[in-house]
Simulated assay, not measured.
Amino acid sequence: MNKKLISIILPIYNEAESIAVLYDRLNGVIDSLSATYDFEIIMVDDGSADESWKKINQLAQLDCRIRGISFSRNFGHQIAISAGYDYARGDALITMDADLQHPPHLIPALIEEWQKGAAIVYVRNRVVANGLVKKFFSTAYYFILDCIVPIKIPHNVQDFRLIDKKVATIVRQSREQSPYLRGMVAWTGFSSTFIDAAYDKRFTGKSGYSLSKMFKLAFDGMTGFSLFPLKIAAYIGFFVIATGCTMFAYITVDAFCNHVYYPLFKWLVTIIYIFIGVLFILIWFLGEYIGRIYNQLQARPLYVVAEELNSITLSNMMNEKKPLHCHCERV
């Protein structure tokens, strides 16, 4: 019986001190599952400035299951995971950070949920965030995301997850320059489930995710799956026009009915105010066109097929000149 292959993808940036410890822990988990599954470990060096690539080379010489990828420079965490998805050959793909915050001992639980039928298995952190300020911004971010994004992006999850190969196939088709993989995986719409667990602390050093990188990731999440920022001009425009027309109607009635004198500049200011609202509406129209161009450039699949019955490929349908016939026997 052929074993199913599990790909473990590790984006690595300046983690030379933790790679050996991570490998030892992964090896212990993999050995316990080796009777049922085959494994490959894909280590993606995201342009590290330390000896991470050297450590990966040493491990690859000792273990043929390790596959190493080294970037020419630092392209970013999400791009490193995307590269791992591109190179992975597994029936299921597990992504986890190399700083040991994502506990390897949860891998059997991820695989178990996958075997039960879930195409996506997230590891949800029991601890929302460390510190009141970080917790506040995390809660506010997910609240805004829920309000403006049409798909449900899971809360309090990082990139510690398992996806089925059919999910990976869809994700690979999207070649975005600023990917937000948490959203992209959720966008596919396949069945998902959660494992609740507490993440560990970093094994050593400081996180490579600076405040600016965290802000960029959050911004990519909002702009990559919502055109709401482009629609803000419309809301402002309608508000300005409505209030401007109300002001104009008021001074008109007051001037003609109550014989109140209004200087010319007040009439002009009111009219200019209304035209500013019109400009916001025109900006909204321009934004809508830009948004459609942006959606087209993202090149995401138009649809995702979960299952097929009596399937026939589109190319065969296009080449088939005769109508399809189905002969069924009546009982």
Results as ranks from 00 to 15, higher is better:
residue 213 K to V: 03
residue 213 K to G: 06
residue 213 K to D: 06
residue 214 M to E: 14
residue 214 M to P: 03
residue 214 M to K: 14
residue 215 F to T: 11
residue 215 F to S: 15
residue 215 F to Q: 07
residue 216 K to L: 15
residue 216 K to C: 06
residue 216 K to W: 12
residue 216 K to E: 13
residue 216 K to P: 03
residue 217 L to S: 08
residue 217 L to T: 12
residue 218 A to N: 08
residue 218 A to S: 15
residue 218 A to K: 11
residue 219 F to N: 03
residue 219 F to E: 06
residue 219 F to G: 00
residue 220 D to K: 01
residue 220 D to H: 03
residue 220 D to M: 06
residue 220 D to W: 01
residue 220 D to R: 01
residue 220 D to E: 08
residue 221 G to N: 03
residue 221 G to R: 09
residue 222 M to E: 06
residue 222 M to I: 13
residue 223 T to G: 00
residue 223 T to Q: 10
residue 224 G to A: 12
residue 224 G to M: 07
residue 225 F to E: 09
residue 225 F to Y: 11
residue 225 F to L: 15
residue 225 F to R: 07
residue 226 S to W: 13
residue 226 S to T: 01
residue 227 L to N: 13
residue 227 L to K: 05
residue 227 L to M: 13
residue 227 L to F: 04
residue 227 L to H: 04
residue 227 L to G: 07
residue 227 L to E: 04
residue 228 F to G: 00
residue 228 F to L: 01
residue 228 F to E: 07
residue 229 P to H: 02
residue 229 P to S: 10
residue 229 P to T: 03
residue 232 I to S: 09
residue 232 I to P: 00
residue 232 I to N: 04
residue 232 I to C: 02
residue 233 A to D: 11
residue 233 A to F: 14
residue 233 A to N: 14
residue 233 A to W: 14
residue 233 A to S: 12
residue 234 A to E: 15
residue 234 A to P: 00
residue 234 A to V: 04
residue 235 Y to R: 08
residue 235 Y to M: 02
residue 235 Y to K: 05
residue 235 Y to Q: 03
residue 235 Y to A: 03
residue 235 Y to S: 07
residue 236 I to N: 11
residue 236 I to Y: 13
residue 236 I to E: 05
residue 237 G to N: 10
residue 238 F to D: 05
residue 238 F to E: 04
residue 238 F to T: 14
residue 238 F to R: 12
residue 239 F to I: 05
residue 239 F to C: 03
residue 239 F to P: 00
residue 239 F to T: 14
residue 239 F to L: 05
residue 240 V to A: 09
residue 241 I to A: 08
residue 241 I to S: 07
residue 242 A to K: 09
residue 242 A to V: 04
residue 243 T to I: 13
residue 243 T to V: 13
residue 243 T to A: 05
residue 243 T to S: 10
residue 243 T to G: 01
residue 244 G to H: 00
residue 244 G to L: 02
residue 244 G to Y: 07
residue 244 G to M: 00
residue 244 G to T: 03
residue 244 G to A: 09
residue 245 C to R: 05
residue 245 C to H: 10
residue 245 C to E: 13
residue 245 C to K: 05
residue 246 T to F: 15
residue 246 T to P: 00
residue 246 T to I: 13
residue 246 T to K: 14
residue 247 M to W: 08
residue 247 M to Y: 09
residue 247 M to A: 05
residue 248 F to P: 02
residue 248 F to C: 11
residue 248 F to T: 09
residue 249 A to N: 10
residue 249 A to S: 15
residue 249 A to T: 12
